[in-house]
């Protein structure tokens, strides 16, 4: 049987590229970055560590309270500081559960204090789905061989 899918496999899918912002970047600059990179969230990192995460949702919801000032605010004023993270060894099954239960789309991947990547819900759930399809096929093959 094929081994269990892990976060390291998700990172491999992405090719290891990670977009980061700095906590004193403006939300205006961040929105340009999101648009240019075609991504939905970026990790905030001032010195290689993990200072926070900020998503298109933070920007979209932020408009309701900050109106015309939104683009001038620093990233640190809207980012989530209490970030849920995972490690490269975590199983895809476990992070899929965390993402669906907590309703979060992006999880930064850390190795100790060091930031090594970010994974998105779409990639996680696709790998989880493939894994479960493999497992179901395997069980059904095993079973039909027994008959």
């Amino acid at each position: 049987m094929r081994r269990t899918s892990r976060v390291a496999d998700v990172l491999k899918l992405k090719g290891g590229r990670m977009v980061t912002a700095r906590s004193d970047d403006t939300i205006g600059a961040l929105s340009e970055q999101l648009r240019r990179e075609k991504c939905g969230a970026v990790v905030v990192s001032d010195n290689g560590g993990l200072d926070g995460i900020i998503s298109e949702r933070d920007v979209a919801y932020g408009l309701a309270t900050h109106l015309g000032d939104l683009h001038t605010l620093p990233v640190k004023s809207l980012m989530t500081k209490d970030v849920i993270t995972c490690s490269a060894d975590d199983t895809v099954a476990e992070v899929a559960r965390v993402m669906t239960e907590r309703r979060i789309r992006h999880l930064p991947v850390t190795d100790g204090e060091q930031l090594i990547g970010i994974i998105g819900m779409r990639d996680v759930l696709m790998l989880r789905l493939q894994e479960m399809e493999r497992r179901t096929q395997m069980i059904s093959k095993l079973y039909s061989a027994e008959l």
Binding site: S31, E32, L34, R35, E56, V59, L70, H71
Partner: peptide
């Protein structure tokens, strides 16, 4: 929400 977030890059202070 993406249209709002990306729209900020284009419209800035006028977005609201």
């Amino acid at each position: 929400e993406r249209d709002l977030a990306y729209g900020l890059a284009v419209h800035g202070a006028h977005l609201p």
